[in-house]
Nucleic acid binder design. Sequence first.
DNA 1: CAACCAATGTTGGAGTCACCAACGAAAGGA
DNA 2: TCCTTTCGTTGGTGACTCCAACATTGGTTG
Lengths: 151, 151
Amino acid sequence: MYGAVVEKTPARLTAKPSWLITQLAVHAHRLASDGFGEMGARGYHYRVLVALEQFGVASQAELGRRCNMDRSDIVATINELAGQGLVERTPDPDDRRRNLVTITTAGERHLRRLEQTLDRVQEDLLAPLTSEDRQTLTHLLTQLLAHHQRG
Amino acid sequence: MYGAVVEKTPARLTAKPSWLITQLAVHAHRLASDGFGEMGARGYHYRVLVALEQFGVASQAELGRRCNMDRSDIVATINELAGQGLVERTPDPDDRRRNLVTITTAGERHLRRLEQTLDRVQEDLLAPLTSEDRQTLTHLLTQLLAHHQRG
DNA sequence: CAACCAATGTTGGAGTCACCAACGAAAGGA
DNA sequence: TCCTTTCGTTGGTGACTCCAACATTGGTTG
């Protein structure tokens, strides 16, 4: 009984924060994708809906900046969301370059369901941590992210 | 002077650990990819080389388990590494299903350079944190990752 | 006003990473 | 011997990130 020899991944890897972060991101992404996928959505959809619900009508370029998404990816996302009747895209009368994107009531309803799914994901993701540890982790990550979004 | 109106991303997003982790992973990945890219490598190459150097000769399936990679992605990676003379692939005489993959001295040299690049990445990534905070973060992330790789 | 520059939406692509289904060959256990 | 598992391989898919180019429009400056 030597115990199952679960193949060990190199310590050189597991010691590196970049490894820990990216691998954990894989799990986070999988959890979220599974949940979103069940309702025909994906991460991009959620991001845009949240931004719309939080700040109201916005141009596509604004949405891109707020959600950390490329303009071209916004186009595709809005196409999909509009196709499902979750947002509406109308030309801005004050600036004919822009489109104004609004969330519909169906979109808000959809967002609420996505939100619930994502809350469960957070729970799963942080399951082994005490609430104090979760707070510490969130604080450290926030610090790091803030630093990298400016510099 | 209202200050630059840097478009704010929704608090609903920035409060979620899954958002923080995945966005930070984006930065980590970008930093690492930039460094690796300058020497014609990518993450998969590094992972495999580290595993080989740490545990010696291994079959492709073993490498996949150690590096958290799909068997099919191992094939492509070994093809590329072998094409550059960084690893060698030879059939296992004791098990004719397997290939034995060995790192070459050129591979070890290449790995050392990748390692240096990645060390700089860790520095960049964690720049704003004290060494104590870094330790805390590493500990928390390790806990989480361990949990999600079993369950 | 004219010339220039910046922003916007859009198209069409790229690369990385993760993952899946299927296959033949080979090994191992019942 | 059958049955199952493992292995390497091929050939995909999807999500996310990012880039280059273009025409249209807005704003600014000479």
